[in-house]
Design a protein around this nucleic acid. Structure first.
Lengths: 333, 333
DNA sequence: CTGTTAGCGCCTTCAT
DNA sequence: ATGAAGGCGCTAACAG
């Protein structure tokens, strides 16, 4: 790969002149500029960002650490993050935390070695995430959705509790009284807050929630399937269920279908996340839609502000989610 | 951020000694090693991969360019690519081509500046992909699924034509004779080959395909929905349909449900890609499953071989897809 | 067993 | 309007 030095030699000018025509950083006579540009083209010279980075101490690269990038929700988020970052001249290094604290630690270490300019952290909130390294690092960090305890970093929230509340209100307003809640593992904060909103709405409406109306399963379609199977097997069935993730809800819909339970006639279902598939479920799923794109853009904005050295105090912004009513909910009976 | 020089000074040794204890690249007396290690820890020194890269001309970073990373199929592929790469010490820079040739060109340029060690290219095959830059670049490239004409690079194929054939055979063996095919835009090679397999199976079975049994739509759930709506509106309905992508098939299932057409009783549906959602569709979708993980691993393996300088001739490997029979297909009537 | 030194490719003062 | 030269952080000869 050609270097600036070679270009300079071929053009019969100094290295610094080449540098200046490339960066438009000082006046260069027109003929020299043309000549240099010609040589650059001819030699297929491409400046080295790594050399530049060494000099400027900036890589224009940001790390994005998510629990699992193949989960449609994260995949969609990543898509917007990538988009926003690219628009501002940054590249994304994609990292899957999936694989435990060990992989995560290794990853963070690597990212620090690569001198990323910043990090977007989408923590699952699992207990094994108390990574020490993180708290000692100096790179700007923006957390999405979930604040790691002890980590001082800007934060973009999506009102999980409020979302759960909205979803449940919708069901209550439809006339449901016996409402169940299907959620992920009890120790995941994301899920816990959503369930919190559910409980608040129920309590507020004077509705009691029997212990067997709350069921925890894996945060996957398989988990949702299992949860619904369990729930629908009870002698007394709920008339509606709030599911804390679309992935689980889709699995639930599948289980309901297999069990001959018609949605929404016999059972209303509300999901959470508004992943692309939700709109084409059978029936199309009513769900809580976090403002993924706005969240991604805001996160990148905040991060790049920090990177550029804004010395603002810690910011935590909460964006509102909206309920998207589709065809999986209806009044009971 | 601390530097090696500072560590050396603090430890009262030379820079090269520090380098050697870090890289275990020559014998160092135990006390010196311990002292240096101590200081490193104390100063939170983290070596700079960018300085290293400048020296070694290796970044341990590979670019992954896909049409759209939020599409579940690509998202799943990416997940495995990331996994395989990480396992071998490489990071992934994620790039969405989505946005046209312009963005793509800009991206490739950036990747070259960043001196990625290699590129995994998942081309959509759209016409605007004839990127000139590519053919002149010297980075190792592995193409997944689709060979860009004129680009000499290793290639990992997934037998699209064969997959379409298998899917159609399945339908024929079930007893269907009037089989339709719903596919993406006619100009996308990926789709075209799958349709090719369909045509071959039909011809081989002596079945004719009326022109109105082939319908093209957007490569999305919305497209699938539209296609099915159109197809089911015909006075004479097909008894089965092969859809060239699960995303479209899911949209189709949704349309069928809305139109009161029962699957598989009245209509059998086969999809393609085996995305996670397919297994939990209503009914669970019979589909062709490309070996995503194997493809990803093979691609990374080939790429890293090249990066390490293996001077092998161009390799094209075709992996076989398998038909996953679930509940969306049955004998006619 | 340890230190000195010459770059890797680029930017950027300081001269001219 | 253009050059020369130092240095970003690290590795790898080359010398002791």
């Amino acid at each position: 790969m050609a270097t600036m030095k070679q270009v300079a030699a071929r053009a019969g000018v100094s290295i610094s002149t080449v540098s200046h025509v490339i960066n438009n950083t000082r006046v260069v006579s027109d003929d020299v500029r043309q000549r240099v540009l010609g040589i650059i083209d001819e030699m297929r010279y491409i400046p080295s960002a790594v050399a530049r980075s060494l000099k400027n101490d900036k890589t224009h690269t940001i790390g994005v650490l998510v629990p699992n990038s193949s989960n449609p929700y994260f995949a969609e988020l990543i898509r917007w993050i990538e988009d926003a970052a690219f628009g501002l001249g940054y590249n994304i290094i994609l990292c899957n935390a999936h694989g435990g604290a060990q992989k995560q630690t290794a990853y963070l270490r690597l990212l620090m070695e690569k001198r990323i300019d910043g990090l977007v952290l989408v923590a699952s909130g699992a207990d094994d995430e108390q990574d020490l390294l993180l708290r000692h690092e100096t790179v700007p960090i923006v957390q999405l959705e979930r604040a790691l305890p002890g980590l001082d970093a800007d934060l973009v929230l999506a009102g999980q509790e409020e979302g759960g509340y909205q979803a449940t209100r919708h069901l209550i307003e439809l006339g449901h009284r016996d409402i169940a809640c299907v959620s992920g593992p009890a120790d995941l904060p994301r899920t816990r807050e959503r369930v919190g909103g559910f409980m608040r709405a129920m309590a507020e409406a004077g509705l009691t929630v029997a212990p067997d109306r709350i069921v925890h399963e894996e945060f996957t379609s398989a988990g949702g399937h299992a949860a619904f199977t369990r729930l629908l097997g009870r002698e007394q069935r709920p008339t509606a269920v709030f599911v804390t993730s679309d992935l689980m809800a889709l699995g639930g819909l599948c289980a309901a279908g297999a069990a001959g339970v018609r949605v929404p006639a016999q059972l209303s279902v509300v999901g959470y996340d508004d992943i692309a598939g939700a709109g084409y479920a059978l029936p199309p799923l009513t769900t809580v839609a976090p403002p993924k794109r706005d969240m991604a853009e805001l996160a990148i904005e905040l991060l790049i502000d920090r990177i550029r050295g804004e010395h603002a105090p810690l910011r935590r912004t909460a964006l509102a989610s909206t309920l998207v009513v589709r065809a999986s909910t209806a009044p009971p009976q």
